[in-house]
Design a protein around this nucleic acid. Sequence first.
DNA 1: AATTAACACACAAACGTTTGCGTAATTATA
DNA 2: TATAATTACGCAAACGTTTGTGTGTTAATT
Lengths: 335, 335
Amino acid sequence: MTGLAKILGVSTSTVSRALKDHHSIGEETREKIKKTAINLGYIPNSVASNLRRRKTNHIGVIVPRIDRYFHSSSISGIEEVANEAGYYVSIFQTKDSYIKEVESVAILMSNKADGIIACLALETSDIDHYKQLANTHIPLVLFDRVCSDLESNKVLINDYDAAFKACEHLAKIGCKKIAHIAGNLNSSIFKARLEGYKAALIKNNLTINEDLIFYGNILSEEEGHLFANELLSMDTRPDGIFCANDITAVSVIQTARERKFSVPKDIAVVGFSNTPISKIIQPSLTTIEDHAFEMGQASARLLIKQIEDNDKNIVSETIIIRNELIIRESTVPLE
Amino acid sequence: MTGLAKILGVSTSTVSRALKDHHSIGEETREKIKKTAINLGYIPNSVASNLRRRKTNHIGVIVPRIDRYFHSSSISGIEEVANEAGYYVSIFQTKDSYIKEVESVAILMSNKADGIIACLALETSDIDHYKQLANTHIPLVLFDRVCSDLESNKVLINDYDAAFKACEHLAKIGCKKIAHIAGNLNSSIFKARLEGYKAALIKNNLTINEDLIFYGNILSEEEGHLFANELLSMDTRPDGIFCANDITAVSVIQTARERKFSVPKDIAVVGFSNTPISKIIQPSLTTIEDHAFEMGQASARLLIKQIEDNDKNIVSETIIIRNELIIRESTVPLE
DNA sequence: AATTAACACACAAACGTTTGCGTAATTATA
DNA sequence: TATAATTACGCAAACGTTTGTGTGTTAATT
C-alpha cells in the first residue's frame, strides 16, 4: 500500500480508504486507486491490518482427531459458516492429549484468534487453559465433549437421552442381557452415555451387571475387537450391546461374524454417530445420528455471534442439537 | 511487552531479547523479566511479531472436502509434521469449486502464509492463482491432484501404475469384460487412472469398450449407485470393474448385492484409496492403498524444507509415494 | 457577501513486536 | 596507564496497515 501510494502520489490513508470505498474519497481518485491496485497486483497485508484493527478474522478449532468422521464433518460445518461470515479456520489436533490441548490454546491466544471452538481431549480434566481465555476476552465454544466446570458456550447433544433411547430400543426388541462398551469416563459424553444406558436398564427392569460394562479409552477398532471377544466368550452371553461409538460397534459385528454368531439374533448391536460405515456394514448398524455437521455449523454460528455481539451481557449459551435413533438390521432382522 | 517493560523499568528491546534468551542480556535481568512475564500472564502478540519478522509460521492447506477420508488423513499427516516443526495449519475447503480455490489462495497470500499445500479442485484447470504465488515467494506443494502445467513441488502417487496393477489383477483372475468408473478427467489422478486402466486392458488383449467406461464427477455414493445399476443392466454384463475411488466401489458392491449378483463371482470389484469402509464391507474390497497420511507428512516436510531452505537454487521437487494393491474378497472369493 | 457546511485529501500516531546501532560501565590487554 | 574489548542495556526505526484530526477548496445557506 505504501508502494501504491508512492506511485500514485497520494497518501497511504487515501489508498486505504479508497480500497474500502470510504465516502470521503472522491469518485475519481477512488477508481484510479482501485484500478492501479489491480494492475499492480497489489495484495493487502492482513497481518498488518490485523495488528492495527486488533482483529484477525481467524477462528481456531481444536479437535481430538481430524481423521475421525465425526470431527471432520463438524470441522466441515464450522468451516462452511465461518467462511460465509468472513472468517478462516485453523485446525489443531490434540490426539486426545492434554498437553497438546494446552499448547494449542496458547498458540491461538498468542495468534490473537478471534474465537475458539474446541472439543475436549479425553485426557483433559483440568481446564485452566480455557479459563485463561476469559481474561483475554476470546470467546469460546465447546462442542460435543464439554465440561460442566467451565462456564462457556456449548453445543452438544443429549447423550444421556440418546443412550437411553438406544438401550430402551434393545430392551423393546427383547434383549435381556444388555452390555455396554463405554468410552473414557473422563469425558462428559461417555459418562452421559453410560448413565443413559443404566437408566434404560433400570426402567426396563433389567439388572445392571458390572461384568457387562466394558470400559474403553479411545474406542478404536482394536479396543472393539478385544471387548467383543471377551463378551462373546462369556458363559452367559449378552443378547444385546450398546457401543459408545460406531467404530467399536462395527468391530463387535465383525467379531461376531468371525465367530459365527448371528447379529441380531444372537446379539443385537447399537452404535453411536451414524458414520458412513454404519450403513454399509452387514448387517447394517442401528445407531444414533448426532448431526456432526450441524453441530459444527451451530458452534461456528454461536461463536461468531459472540465475537460480533456488542451485547456483553450474555455470558454463555448452550445449544442442544437433536439426535435420533436410526434403526437398522443390527437390531431388527430383515423379514 | 510494552506493559512488562514499563513495570520493570527496562526497555522493550531488553524484554524482547530476554524472553528469547539473547546473550546480550545479563543473567539477572533475564531471569527477572522471565519471572514477571509468567507472573503477569504475559502473552506475546504473534501478529505483531509476524509483521515485524515477515514470517507467520503458518501454512495453509487447501483441500476439496475435509470429510473425505483421504483428505482428512492427509491433513492429519500435514498437521503432525507442521506442528513438530513449529508451524500451525489452517484449512480451506474448496468443495471442488474453482472460485473457492482462488479465494482461498488470495486469503492465504494476504495472510502471509509461509507456504501452501494444496490438492486441486475438480473444477480447476486454470492455475494462474498458483502462478501468482511465485511472485510472492510463497512456496507451494501440490499433492495428489496436481497439475502438469505448473512448475511446483509435488507429492503424489503413480496413479497410472496403480490403476494398471488393479486392472491387471482383474485380468489375471479371469475377467474378460472390465468396466471402469472414472472420475472427473479434468483431474490429473483420474485421467491417469483411466490411462492405466486402458493400458492394462491392452496389455492383456482385452478390447477397450467405451460403453464400459462410466464418466463420473465427484464420485459420490449416488453416482456409484447410478453407474452400478446401469452396468448391471447391460446385456453383456461386465465381469469386473475398476472404480476410481472406494466410495463408488462400495456402491457397486451394495447394488450388486441388492440385485442378487455375487461379488466377485458375477462381477469382481476394485476400489481406490483403502479407506476404512473397504475392510468392512462384505465382501471386503480389493483396493489401492495410497498412503494418504504419509502423503500429508511428505508434503509438509517438503514445504517446510522449501520455506526454510536458503538454497534458492532448487525450484521444485516431485516426490512419488509408494502404493500397493490390497487384494481382498471382492476379487478373490474366500475358500 | 459573509458564514457555514460539505468534500477530498494529507498528517501522523498507533498496533506490539524485532533489530541495528549507539553508549555507558566494566574488564582485559599492551 | 592508556587503549581496546566486552558486557548490558537503551534508542529509535521499521513492519504495513487503520483512523482521528487537521486543512484547504468548493458548494450551500442566509
